[in-house]
Computed example of a mutant assay.
Amino acid sequence: MFQLQEYKGSKEEQFALATAQLIALVEGESSRIANLANASALLGQFLKEINWAGFYLMEGDQLVLGPFQGLPACVRIPLGRGVCGTAALQRRTVRVDDVEQFPGHIACDAASRSEIVIPMIKYGELLGVLDIDSPLKNRFDEEDERLLEQFTAELVKRL
C-alpha cells in the first residue's frame, strides 16, 4: 500500500491525498465501525510522530472507545472529563500543546505529550470524537487543526 507519510508535498497536499484515500475507503460502505476502523488505520499510517489515533463514540451521556490505532486505551470517558470529554461537551476542537498542563487530563498512554480532539457532529447530533495523541509536545499546529477538521468532516458526511 502507498505510504502517505513518504509523500513530500505540502501539508495541505498530504491531507488532500489522505482525504481522497479516506473517501475511496469509506464511500458506499454502510458499517460505521468499518469506516472508523479504516479511518483510524489511515491516520495511523499517514500522520508522523503520533502514538494514538482513534475514535470515541457517544453512548448515552459518555464517550465509549471505538476503533483506534495504538496502545490499549481508556474505555469510557464522561462528558467534560479530559481532553476528549471537554471537546465533546463543548462541541469544538481542543488542541493541547502539553497534556500535563491540561486540567483533568486522562493519561491512557504515559508517553503522550500533546493531543488534538475533533468532535464528530452530524445533523446537530454528537456522534463522538476523533482523538490523536503524540509523544511530542506542540505536535499539532493551527494548520493540522484545520486540515484534521476537514478530514473529519468528510468522514462524518459518510457515517
Score class of each variant (00 low, 15 high):
4 L>C: 06
6 E>Q: 12
6 E>R: 14
7 Y>A: 10
9 G>H: 12
9 G>P: 01
9 G>V: 14
11 K>P: 12
12 E>H: 11
13 E>N: 09
14 Q>E: 11
15 F>Y: 15
15 F>T: 02
17 L>Y: 04
17 L>V: 14
18 A>S: 14
19 T>R: 15
20 A>S: 08
21 Q>M: 11
21 Q>K: 14
22 L>C: 07
22 L>V: 07
23 I>R: 10
24 A>T: 05
25 L>M: 08
25 L>E: 09
25 L>A: 07
26 V>N: 01
27 E>M: 08
29 E>M: 06
30 S>R: 12
31 S>V: 03
32 R>G: 00
33 I>E: 14
34 A>G: 00
36 L>Q: 03
37 A>C: 09
37 A>M: 11
37 A>T: 15
39 A>K: 04
39 A>E: 03
40 S>L: 06
41 A>T: 10
42 L>W: 11
42 L>V: 14
43 L>R: 01
43 L>W: 03
44 G>Y: 05
45 Q>T: 12
45 Q>F: 05
46 F>R: 01
48 K>S: 13
49 E>A: 05
49 E>I: 04
49 E>G: 05
49 E>T: 05
50 I>H: 01
52 W>L: 06
53 A>N: 04
53 A>R: 01
54 G>L: 08
54 G>V: 07
55 F>M: 03
55 F>V: 07
55 F>S: 04
56 Y>K: 02
57 L>Y: 02
59 E>F: 05
61 D>P: 01
62 Q>C: 07
62 Q>T: 05
63 L>C: 00
